[in-house]
Amino acid sequence: MSRNTEPPVDVDEAVARINSRGAKIQQEQLERTLSQLQQDGDLTAAQRLAVEQLSERLVERLLAVPRASLQDAARNADDERIETAISLFE
């Protein structure tokens, strides 16, 4: 646990970076996948929506643990853990 005289690390900034990185990866992979599926044949609107929803659910589930860990770090004033998370999701 880091307790020093430096200003506290903003956990909201860390969560925002995680969300931003997750959204970027999700969008890149969604576009790639939809492009590949469309090359193989026509996608219906329902199929496209299903793929989009799947990508959103996967990202949300994958990022839930880092977000929860950051909230725990904030409650415990663990700036080192928050800084590590920020650096991992840049």
Score class of each variant (00 low, 15 high):
Leu37Ala: 04
Arg57Pro: 05
Asp40Arg: 13
Thr5Lys: 07
Lys24Val: 05
Gln36Leu: 14
Leu43Ala: 06
Arg17Thr: 05
Gly41His: 04
Leu30Tyr: 01
Gln47His: 09
Ala45Cys: 00
Arg57Gln: 15
Gln26Met: 15
Glu28Lys: 11
Ile18Asp: 00
Ala73Tyr: 01
Gln53Asn: 15
Arg67Phe: 06
Ala16Arg: 09
Val15Ala: 06
Glu6Cys: 13
Pro8Thr: 05
Arg21Ile: 03
Glu60Lys: 14
Asp12Met: 12
Ala68Gly: 14
Val15Asn: 01
Leu49Thr: 09
Ala74Cys: 02
Ala73Trp: 01
Arg57Ile: 11
Ile86Thr: 00
Leu34Arg: 00
Glu60Pro: 02
Arg48Leu: 12
Arg75Gly: 12
Asp40Met: 15
Ala64Met: 09
Gly22Thr: 01
Met1Asp: 03
Leu34His: 00
Val51Gln: 05
Ala50Arg: 05
Asp10Thr: 04
Gln36Asp: 12
Glu6Ser: 14
Gln29Glu: 14
Arg21Ser: 11
Asp78Trp: 03
Gln47Met: 15
Val9Asp: 00
Val65Met: 08
Ala23Asn: 08
Leu88Glu: 08
Gly41Tyr: 05
Glu52His: 08
Ser35Asp: 11
Arg17Ala: 14
Glu13Gly: 06
Ser35Lys: 10
Glu83Gln: 14
Leu58Val: 12
Pro8Cys: 07
Val9Arg: 01
Ala14Phe: 03
Pro7Leu: 13
Gly41Val: 06
Gln26Ser: 11
Ser2Phe: 05
Ser87Ile: 03
Asp10Tyr: 05
Glu28Asp: 15
Arg75Lys: 13
Glu31Asn: 14
Ala74Ile: 00
Ala46Asp: 11
Glu60Asn: 12
Gln29Ser: 13
Gln29Pro: 03
Arg67Ala: 04
Asp12Cys: 08
Ser55Trp: 08
Leu30Asp: 01
Gln27Asp: 12
Gln47Trp: 07
Asp10Met: 06
Pro8Gln: 06
Glu80Asp: 13
Asn76Val: 05
Arg61Lys: 15
Gln27Met: 09
Glu56Gly: 10
Arg57His: 14
Leu70Met: 13
Gln36Arg: 12
Ile18Trp: 00
Met1Val: 10
Glu52Phe: 12
Lys24Pro: 02
Ile25Trp: 01
Arg67Asn: 10
Phe89Met: 10
Ser2Met: 06
Gln53Pro: 07
Ser20Thr: 08
Ala77Asn: 06
Pro7Asn: 07
Thr5Pro: 02
Arg48His: 08
Val65Cys: 02
Lys24Cys: 05
Val11Gly: 02
Thr44Gln: 03
Thr84Arg: 06
Ser20Met: 10
Glu80Lys: 10
Val59Ala: 13
Ala50Gly: 10
Glu90Gly: 15
Glu31Gln: 11
Ser35Gln: 10
Asn76Thr: 06
Arg75Glu: 14
Glu83Asp: 11
Asn19Cys: 07
Ala68Asp: 11
Ala16Leu: 08
Ile82Val: 10
Glu52Met: 13
Pro66Ala: 11
Leu49Ser: 13
Gly41Phe: 08
Ser87Lys: 07
Leu30Met: 09
Ala50Glu: 09
Met1Lys: 01
Ala74Thr: 00
Leu62Gln: 06
Pro7Trp: 07
Val65Leu: 12
Glu60Thr: 15
Asp72Asn: 11
Leu62Thr: 02
Leu54Trp: 00
Gln47Val: 12
Arg61Cys: 11
Val15Gly: 02
Ala50Asn: 04
Arg21Pro: 03
Asp12Asn: 15
